[in-house]
């Protein structure tokens, strides 16, 4: 009998553990959001987060977008040549960058750069009792550490996505006009004519969602870090894994929602 019940008990325990984890995360999410609207507001922390998440991510976002746009142009040109459709490079680069690659690449870069650093920083604060010190100094750690970072990411990552989209299209433009023989004026006109407002809006919405996910994961895993260097390492690794998977899953859900009609 035990042989039958033991695996079932394990499945039950794992399921309960997973549900408890989801519950904890949802409570964390709602508590974070509630601090957006309840004073005191830590304006300095918010602007510092804007700077570190936004401004200091510009180089990596720019380089990623530039090379992605260039590679996309080469791929579309080579693929399109199979059925005499090389001319659609500007349109496909524009739609590919703005609708999909721009937000996803920027989201993943933010997960790599911001989620990891936020998780490591907060986890180290947890391990070195800095979080406890905040509490004893009458400062709510969720309000002081989590809310400003998540709000800053939700605001600034769409801007990064917009910049990434432009640089990505520029990468495709450079490759197409310099090596594939496209006329620059025609390329730009085709890009502008083909892109719709909904493409751009959806790109920015994705950016806001991905930014929120990236910052939230870093804060959640940092706040719930285990002890010692191993705890910090595990929190950092888990936060990036969770952020990357959730960004890709959210991208699928948002694409289905925004472009299914």
């Amino acid at each position: 009998m035990n042989l039958v019940l033991s695996p079932l008990a394990t499945v039950g325990r794992k399921t309960l553990g997973m549900l408890a984890g989801i519950g904890r995360f949802i409570m964390f999410l709602f508590e974070t959001i509630s601090h957006f609207f309840r004073p005191p507001f830590y304006v300095g922390e918010f602007f510092q987060a804007l700077l570190s998440i936004g401004y200091f991510s510009l180089p990596v976002v720019g380089m990623t977008a530039l090379f992605t746009g260039g590679a996309l142009a080469l791929q579309i040109y080579a693929g399109g040549a199979r059925f005499n459709a090389e001319a659609v490079v500007p349109q496909i680069v524009a739609i590919g960058m703005v609708r999909e690659l721009g937000p996803v690449m920027v989201g993943l870069m933010i997960a790599a750069r911001v989620t990891s650093s936020v998780a490591a920083e907060i986890a180290t604060m947890r391990v070195t009792e800095q979080i406890d010190a905040l509490v004893t100094l009458s400062t709510n750690p969720m309000k002081y550490l989590t809310a400003p970072r998540v709000l800053a990411a939700v605001i600034v990552v769409p801007i990064l996505v917009g910049i990434g989209d432009i640089i990505g299209i520029a990468g495709g433009f450079l490759v197409s006009t310099e090596t594939l023989g496209f006329n620059s004026a025609t390329y730009l006109r085709n890009t502008a004519d083909f892109l719709e407002t909904t493409d751009i809006v959806s790109s920015l919405i994705k950016g806001a969602v991905f930014g929120g996910i990236a910052a939230l994961m870093g804060c959640y895993y940092g706040m719930n870090s285990g002890r010692g260097a191993q705890g910090v390492g595990r929190a950092t690794k888990s936060s990036v894994e969770a952020a990357a998977v959730l960004i890709l899953a959210a991208n699928f859900a948002l694409t289905a929602l925004l472009f299914s009609a």
């Binding site: 604060m125 070195t128 009792e129 406890d132 010190a133 004893t136 100094l137 009458s138």
Partner: peptide
């Protein structure tokens, strides 16, 4: 909570200064 904690000061084992 705030009024209560305002009456306390604490020196942590590792100082716990904000880096």
């Amino acid at each position: 909570r705030d009024a209560f904690l305002a009456r306390f000061g604490m020196l942590f084992q590792g100082a716990a200064l904000f880096d």
